[in-house]
Nucleic acid binder design. Structure first.
Length: 259
DNA sequence: ATGGTTGGTCGCCAA
């Protein structure tokens, strides 16, 4: 089974590239974040014509998540009980071939002294509390998406510059660590220990050609997923500008292959 | 220390 997570930064603007991605990788499941569209305006027909079923949880202008799958999804869940900001569409879960997948768009937080930072921490805690109460680490479970957290300094192009900044702070990393301590593993790190592997590059200041990236799009899985994990790849090509398909998202897709 | 781009929407906010 192949699962991709991608912060698409507007599904309507990115539709040609999204269709090309489906064609190129033929994933069983594509988890999208930042679709930025209300459910009745989601380009459902074009994606269904490509052979995918569509489950959306969106809102106007901001946020929005979606699951595109070849086969029907079971037990689709939009949001989670205890979410401190339920008006923001940031989480959708479903089961595919016995594997429960949660697709998250974690609050960015803006800056450590921003009012949005405690909301980020509360949202992560809210999801963790739900997961800890309602799920077990011995289940077949993956939690994927844009976490807006770089887990370690090796996930940051310039750790000194980013030290203590949003996406890299101790508080955020400790919150992510609570997910790992519960029983989830950063599946990318099973097969790659080195630095220089990023999934997001700021649109500004030519960050991508300069290599100024962070790895903030993650694939977390329980112990049974470790056994089934064949590898996790980052599709850096998708972040490059190409002719004819429009501009890239500021995030690269991340591809998980399970036995 | 700060830079400066993209998307949604149409004056800015968010990232």
């Amino acid at each position: 089974m192949k699962i991709i997570t991608w912060n698409v930064n507007s599904i309507r603007t990115r539709l040609p590239r999204c269709l090309a991605l489906l064609e190129r990788h033929s994933p069983d499941l594509l988890c999208l974040q930042e679709t930025k569209v209300e459910d009745d305006k989601f380009p459902r027909q074009e994606i269904e014509a490509a052979g995918y079923q569509v489950e959306v949880f969106g809102q106007k202008t901001y946020n929005g998540v979606a699951l595109l799958s070849k086969k029907p999804l079971e037990n689709v869940q939009r949001g989670f009980p205890g979410n401190p900001i339920p008006e923001q569409a940031r989480a959708i879960g479903a089961t595919l071939d016995g594997v429960e997948v949660w697709n998250l768009y974690v609050v960015n937080g803006q800056a450590l002294d921003s009012p949005k930072f405690p909301i980020k921490m509360a949202w992560l805690q809210g999801f963790f509390d739900w997961m800890q109460g309602e799920r077990k680490p011995n289940q077949d479970l993956v939690v994927v998406g844009d976490f807006n957290i770089a887990p370690e300094d090796r996930d940051v192009h310039d750790p000194k510059k980013w030290s203590g900044k949003i996406l890299c702070s101790d508080q955020e990393r400790e919150k992510l660590q609570s997910f790992l301590d519960w029983g989830l593993t950063d599946l990318f790190r099973l097969h790659e220990a080195g630095d220089g592997h990023f999934t997001w590059w700021d649109y500004r200041a030519g960050a991508f050609p300069r290599g100024w990236g962070l790895r903030i799009d993650l694939m977390l899985g329980t112990a049974s997923m470790i056994k089934r994990c064949r590898g996790v790849q980052i599709d850096r090509e998708e972040r490059k500008k190409t002719t004819g398909e429009g501009t890239p998202s500021d995030h690269a897709p991340v591809i998980l292959e399970l036995d």
